[in-house]
């Protein structure tokens, strides 16, 4: 098998079937996500783009296919380690390196913003509490929410919650960030502040996979655009090129509806 060092996530023949294969949420998806990619996934609702994204860290269990992350097939229960021994695949360890941001933020309502951010670093990575808090405050400062560190999620606006959710994932120092329609549940005036944070992340070279309906973001920020429909990747390429010259009828139709 050829190994290209810069491929971070290699997806092969990914399938997700329901009802004995009569509903195909994912129908043979193949894609390589390379380090530094800002991949934007677009498509009509029900096209499987969220299922695809959620499969990448196995929040959704695929019916068939493989997802290689850091050289390990995370869909397997056991994998060969570097010494050539079969060991239990440590999904939790892989998930630490894949930050995820959800449509509905999913902040922990019973914890303060600061504790939302330090819980996983302290409990999972066994980071010193002081250090974790310092890091969290620095991250909060970056998104302009340092003064809300001791607030509870309910006290924040939607845009603020999503910014916290992003830095909560960043606190684990992930290798890739997965965004599942991060602005879809926001009031229109709050979309900008979240996209701004994502843009900055992209500028810093973070590997990102974003499912979104923000076409402006897809065109301006992404360096790869993927168009999905009916569980398949119908078209992919350089975003500006794809916006200018959509190849398939399906994409032309989609653009005509959303642009």
């Amino acid at each position: 098998m050829e190994t290209r060092d810069d491929v971070l996530i290699r997806v092969r023949n990914l399938k997700k079937y329901y009802n004995r294969g009569t509903i195909k949420a994912l129908d043979d998806v193949n894609i390589d996500i390379r380090k530094g990619d800002v991949m934007v996934v677009i498509g009509p609702s029900g096209s499987g783009k969220s299922t695809f994204l959620r499969s990448l860290n196995l929040l959704e269990l695929p019916t068939a296919g493989s997802i290689e992350f850091d050289g390990e097939d995370i869909t397997q229960k056991k994998v060969l380690n570097k010494d050539g021994k079969m060991v239990k695949m440590d999904l939790d360890a892989h998930r630490q390196k894949m930050g995820m941001v959800f449509q509905h933020f999913n902040l922990f309502p019973h914890l303060t913003i600061l504790n939302n951010m330090t819980l996983a670093p302290i409990k999972v990575k066994h980071m010193d509490q002081k250090l974790a808090e310092e890091k969290a405050l620095k991250l909060l400062d970056r998104v302009g929410l340092k003064d809300r560190a001791n607030a509870y999620p309910i006290q924040l606006s939607g845009g603020q919650k999503q910014r916290v959710a992003i830095v909560r994932a960043l606190a684990m120092e992930p290798e890739v960030m997965l965004f599942d329609e991060p602005t879809s549940a926001l009031d229109p005036e709050m979309v900008g502040e979240v996209l701004e944070v994502m843009k900055e992340l992209a500028r810093e070279g973070m590997t990102m996979v974003c499912v979104t309906h923000e076409m402006g973001f897809a065109r301006e920020v992404g360096n790869r655009l993927v168009f999905m429909a009916e569980g398949k990747i119908l078209e992919q390429g350089e975003p500006k090129e794809m916006f200018a010259n959509p190849q398939t009828e399906r994409l032309k139709e989609f653009f005509s509806q959303v642009l």
Binding site: N57, L59, D92, A93, R95, Q96, K97, M98, G99, M100, F102, H104, N106, L107, F108, P109, H110, L119, A120, K123, V124, K125, A165, R168, A169, M172, L178
Partner: peptide, 24 residues
């Protein structure tokens, strides 16, 4: 979504139960 968020941060099922689910 709480479980999904916890698991996506790398927490085990037991940690999720103890720190996220049971308190709520």
């Amino acid at each position: 979504g709480q479980t999904e968020a916890a698991r996506s941060l790398g927490m085990s099922q037991a940690m999720n139960l103890r720190y996220i689910i049971l308190p709520q």
